[in-house]
Design a protein around this nucleic acid. Sequence first.
DNA 1: GTATCGATTAGC
DNA 2: CTAATCGATACA
Length: 204
Amino acid sequence: MSVARSLLGRVLVCGTGASRVAGRVVEVEAYRGTGDPASHAHLGPTPRTAVMFGPPGHAYVYFTYGMHYCLNLVTEPQGSAAAVLLRALEPLDGLPLMRRRRARRGVPPADMALARGPGNLARALGLGLRDSGRDVTRGRLWVSNLPAERAGRRVLAMPRIGLRRGALRRWRFLLEGHPAASPPRRTPSIPKPLRRLGRRAVRR
DNA sequence: GTATCGATTAGC
DNA sequence: CTAATCGATACA
């Protein structure tokens, strides 16, 4: 948890030279292993989650919904699973490349939205499964040593997003009022498979 | 082998 | 609100 908070305001860099992009971390979510039913690792190690049980300071990238990649940083020592999901960056460097990677049909996203949302963030950085396991203290993907710069913004703790289980924990952290972070969500919607069961049936 | 769901997103 | 789209998972 403290690692998640300490990442806010730090700079994440991906690539070198002409392919270098960088952004300031403005929104994260913390996941643990055992005891956190929302975590991919809560049932123990699998081929997919092995890096979550490995040493800290490495990337855990997963593929979801058949089309999106999401970037985590492993935070706990070998054998103990925990990771921080990076949910939003403020784009700082390599904006043209980020725009190109994020271009789809329709209206292009605003610059502040280029790396907003975990799937969008991974796409803007050009990340895929081959990046899972990378050492983020060296190499082409790294968290810079620059001091965290939060511009006086407070850290807000809110419930995690998009979960059916473990959603009560306020393990989502963001810089209050930052334009690159997600807009506030007032009424979390209930996933469609459980909607007919009613609000009570949703485990939180 | 089949069925279901997901740490999401864009678009209506 | 739903479609998109496929790997992981649960189960027969």
